[in-house]
């Protein structure tokens, strides 16, 4: 069942349909807000807020086929609202280890170090470039979908992508981050 059908069922009164939507979008939205905010505690709250706002405002979604850009808009607005309330962004909480018993300890440390470095690098970017890079590299959105979500022209999206990647390249060079370094062979 696609998103539009689930939305129609939810509007008909079946709250189970909305819970199915939540299960489907929980992971993408959580990782989007995680990379935007930079810490897991904020990411949990922002993810919850996103779905609560979606629940309350579902009747305002005119075109159910545009649910993807709509839910990312809500998530982005929630992130920006939180950012206005809190001007500093914590860069340290990504060091918290993740429970994983299948990967060797040094691999876990390595993965956490890479994750922490990339998070710090992204947080160094201007917000408008960071959003485009996260949506393209991690959420897999097309440039047209990003332009629709951010309500900016298509070329603006590509331009921000170019400048964002260029700025990250300089950061990676300064911090000696290379493809070989991040690639971990078990």
């Amino acid at each position: 069942m696609n998103d539009a059908e689930l939305i129609a069922q939810f509007r008909a009164g079946q709250i189970a349909a909305f819970n199915t939507l939540v299960k489907r979008w929980e992971c993408p939205i959580y990782n989007f807000v995680l990379r935007y905010a930079g810490n897991r505690d904020d990411a949990r709250d922002l993810c919850q807020q996103t779905f609560i706002r979606a629940y309350k405002n579902m009747r305002r979604l005119r075109d159910p086929d545009k649910f993807t850009s709509w839910i990312y808009q809500i998530a982005l607005n929630a992130c920006r609202d939180a950012g206005r309330r809190r001007s500093l962004v914590s860069l340290d909480t990504l060091d918290t280890p993740i429970a994983d018993t299948t990967t060797p300890p040094d691999a876990i440390v390595h993965e956490q170090s890479v994750r922490d470095l990339l998070n710090r690098a992204l947080q160094n970017l201007p917000e408008e470039q960071r959003v485009v890079i996260i949506m393209k590299e991690y959420q897999g959105l097309k440039f047209t979908e990003i332009a629709e979500t951010l309500k900016v022209p298509l070329n603006t999206v590509k331009s921000r992508m170019y400048y964002g990647l260029s700025a990250l390249k300089k950061i990676f060079d300064r911090w000696h981050i290379s493809e070989d370094m991040v690639r971990y062979e078990l």
Binding site: E26, L118, L168, S178
Partner: peptide, 15 residues
């Protein structure tokens, strides 16, 4: 740069 960024894998939210 794009390939380096992709080293950061998604996490499971467990919410």
């Amino acid at each position: 740069t794009s390939r380096i960024l992709n080293a950061w894998n998604d996490e499971q939210p467990n919410l």
